[in-house]
Nucleic acid binder design. Structure first.
Length: 484
RNA sequence: CGGGGUGUAGUGUAACGGUAGCACGAGUCCUUUGGGAGGAUUUAGUUCGGGUUCAAAUCCCGCCACCCCGACCA
């Protein structure tokens, strides 16, 4: 059966060739295309529409949090990045640098932003002088450039799209609150919209954002058994405010460095979406983020009755289902079966067939993309039923993904166990780690697994144990996995 | 950036160093439309740049891109 679909769809099998499947689905569903420059990709309209929907829901939450949108330049003077030592060390290997402008060699090279901390904070130091200027909460939607050596659609590109929030606070507690707010918001976006479960926790010293005090991360599990860092939120402490000379006078007139945060969610999330839910017939999109939530395929019966069917189908689209993103497929010259396959490839969550039979019985035939279930609904109940079914699809996708994640967290009692899991199903591994970077590095070299995070639950759960690698005392159980 | 592989029409493929062929797609017309319909007709290609040869898709060198595996990373 799987082979049959493989042939029919001209799609690699998700199970047998995950990488091939991923690329095929993206190209054939029209999400994206290769660009002439290695590592760059084109977001085609269908893929960009998903990004716009993600932007819309996240942007509302960011604004409701009191953060305002702004836009900073794409070029950053090279010297700005040098100001924070860890920051420049972390980013220098992957910078794109402009040396010529307007035909002339530039006096100071310009870095194409890999992230905007430095250019924003140079401005913040001008804008902030009093406690009355705080908190300052700025977000920007933009592209960033990181010269990745091994690109992959959406997951890892030289240029990608994201949102970066940057806030400045008069107290450390307030900054921490902001960092937590961002993480909770990302969790909600992933769970309620992308229908993807994730685990939140602290990054280790070596995995945290270059220049941050600490980094919170959301880690999701992909069907390949590999882990995807899905969103991050950084507590920058006073490191950047000191490097960039951001100072404010507090209520007592005392000068002090403020506490800062930065947090981001990128177009990588679309990659997660594709991987998490798709199947051998193509994409499967959750209704909340599907550019087309419902497709109506009219079935013609010959010249005579066609007009009535088309008119009724239009009425269904424009009146009964006017609250949804609906596509009415009136294209001629394609058979109904052909259209079914195409819309399945594009992952449209719900298909409505409307033909002579439905016309006669005043009903519609619905098919759920995620499990192929067919439901017959009277036109009188269609509006109500559609709402229920779309909610159900959204929930089913999330529950399936959550179940997969929970079933793939394994405890490694010792290092042999650890290695066995990594050479088998992979997924998440929970294990004691002494927090010595040497053990972390060795584990990575020997198994490809890196620390993903110290889960929020991990700290309470753990009574002191022994490091899975060196056997020395360890306070916490960390989550390991092979990262994308 | 290191190792391995691939590159022929829009896509998938075939051709010993000697006529670039097939299928799908796309265009037009007709018949069709409940799980990728049929006929007629048209269309289009050796990644790019060098070299060897009487002759190169085929052999050699290089560029670029893509895939897989590493190192680096959202």
């Amino acid at each position: 059966m799987a082979e049959k679909i493989f042939e029919k769809k001209q799609l690699a099998s998700k199970k047998e060739d995950f990488s091939g499947w991923y690329t095929d689905v993206i190209l054939k569903s029209g999400l994206a295309d290769y660009a002439p420059v290695k590592g760059c990709m084109v977001f085609k309209p269908y893929g960009y529409a998903i990004w716009e929907l993600i932007q819309k829901v996240l942007d509302e939450k960011i604004k409701a949090n009191g953060t305002k949108n702004a836009y900073f330049p794409v070029f950053i003077p090279e010297s700005f990045l040098d100001k924070e030592k860890e920051h420049i060390e972390g980013f220098s290997p992957e910078l794109a640098v402009v040396t010529i402008g307007g035909g002339k060699k530039l006096d100071e090279k310009l870095v194409v932003r890999p992230t905007s901390e430095t250019i924003m904070y140079s401005m913040f130091s001008k804008w902030i002088s009093s406690w009355r200027d705080l908190p300052l909460k700025i977000n920007q939607w933009c592209n960033v450039v990181r010269w990745e050596k091994r690109p992959r659609f959406f997951i890892r590109n030289i240029e990608f799209l994201w949102q970066e929030g940057h806030t400045v606070h008069s107290s450390e507690a307030e900054a921490k609150e902001q960092v937590n707010w961002a993480m909770k918001t990302y969790e909600e976006i992933y769970r309620s919209f992308l229908a993807i479960e994730g685990i939140t926790g602290q990054k280790s010293e070596s995995e945290k954002f270059p220049g941050a005090e600490s980094t919170l991360t959301l880690e999701s599990l992909m069907p390949s058994g590999m882990v995807l860092q899905s969103a991050t939120s950084h507590n920058l402490g006073q490191k950047f405010s000191k490097s960039f000379n951001i100072e404010f006078s507090d209520q007592e007139g005392k000068k002090s460095f403020p506490w800062q945060t930065s947090w981001g969610l990128s177009s990588r999330s679309i990659g997660a979406l594709i991987m998490a839910h798709g199947d051998d017939a193509g994409l499967v999109l959750p209704p909340a983020l599907a550019p087309i939530q419902i497709v109506i395929v009219p079935i013609f019966k010959g010249k005579e009755g066609d007009e009535a069917i088309i008119n009724k189908a239009k009425e269904i689209k424009e009146e009964i289902l006017k609250d949804y993103r609906v596509e009415l497929d009136l294209r001629e010259g394609y058979s109904a079966g052909w259209k079914f396959n195409e819309w399945e490839m594009k992952g449209v969550p719900l298909r409505i067939e409307f033909g002579p039979k439905e016309m006669e019985q005043n009903k519609a035939s619905l098919t759920k993309r995620n499990d192929g279930q067919k439901i017959s609904v009277g036109l009188g109940d269609l509006k109500e039923q559609t709402a229920k079914i779309l909610d159900k699809i959204q929930e089913e996708l999330f529950q399936k993904n959550k179940k997969y994640l929970l079933e793939n967290i394994r405890e490694a009692a010792d290092y042999d166990d650890f290695k066995k899991i990594m050479s088998g199903p992979k997924g998440f591994i929970k294990a004691y780690w002494c927090e010595d970077p040497v053990c972390e590095r060795k584990i990575k070299e020997e198994t490809k697994a890196t620390t993903r995070c110290l889960p929020e639950s991990g700290a309470q759960e753990a009574e002191a144990g022994k490091c899975v690698y060196c056997g020395k005392p360890a306070k916490n159980k960390w989550l390991f996995g092979q990262a994308y």
